[in-house]
Design a protein around this nucleic acid. Structure first.
Length: 221
DNA sequence: ACCCAGGGTCATA
DNA sequence: TATGACCATGGG
């Protein structure tokens, strides 16, 4: 997994799918809510839950922090794990308000902010990195199930490496281009949803093979 | 009637 | 450190 491989895959994905304009949300706070609700959940279900929150005029950190958990869970129902996510969302919002909101949090270093996010119960490495990249525009490469699947199909990784091993390895190889990280992860998800299915030798493997071929050609020059 | 989805926590060995 | 159980809805 070196720089040339990663750049070639990026160009292949970008030319295949075009810019994805992520994250699909109107505000940074909505990005954060979506990042928590989409944990192991199809995005279409998250959209319903966020739609409920908007309709109830509840898409606001202070209001969610104050909202009774059982009450909030009703609106989160379509996104699954609604009891767990009601807790997580309330805990996150309490933390967010206590920290002084978006403008205050912006002043932290990326590392400092990441540690603080990870200290919130219910925020794991991927959710934290979604928030860092898509709500705070920090150069953090998000590792998700699609990333592991694609990269292991390409033969670049085993797939069960620790999260930080993959993130730091990719960041070291790619450098710190926020715009590219934003687009890259979105493209991997797009590719995963469209054709890189769980079953081996899916259509996504064809693009992977093409990519490997292109990389081999570059190596010969 | 399955399998899967833009994870994380907790208990156990 | 590394598995496994658990959380739960909606689409294919």
């Amino acid at each position: 997994m070196n720089r040339r491989q990663l750049q070639t895959l990026y160009r292949q994905l970008l030319s295949q799918y075009g810019p994805q304009h992520w994250w699909p949300a109107d505000t940074p706070f909505e990005v954060m809510v979506g990042a928590i609700l989409t944990q192991n959940t199809a995005w279409t279900n998250v959209e319903r839950a966020i739609g409920n929150l908007k309709r109830e005029h509840l898409l606001n950190p202070e209001l969610i922090a104050r909202c009774p958990k059982a009450h909030l869970a009703v609106f989160l129902r379509p996104s699954g794990y609604f009891n767990v996510k009601a807790d997580r969302l309330k805990l996150f919002c309490s933390w967010y308000v206590e920290m002084g909101g978006y403008e205050r949090l912006k002043f932290h270093t990326t590392r400092g902010l990441r540690h603080r996010l990870l200290a919130v119960k219910g925020i794991g490495p991927e959710t934290a990195d979604d928030i860092l990249l898509y709500a705070f525009n920090r150069a953090v490469f998000v590792i998700d199930a699609y990333t592991r699947r694609l990269f292991s199909r390409l033969g670049w990784i085993k797939g069960d490496e620790p999260y930080e091993t993959l993130r730091l390895g990719i960041e070291r190889a790619l450098g710190g281009n926020v715009k590219q990280y934003n687009e890259y992860h979105a493209l991997i998800v797009k590719h995963g949803k469209d054709i890189c299915r769980p079953t081996p030798r899916c259509r996504g493997c064809a693009l992977a093979a093409r990519c490997v071929g292109a990389i081999r050609k570059l190596a010969q020059k």
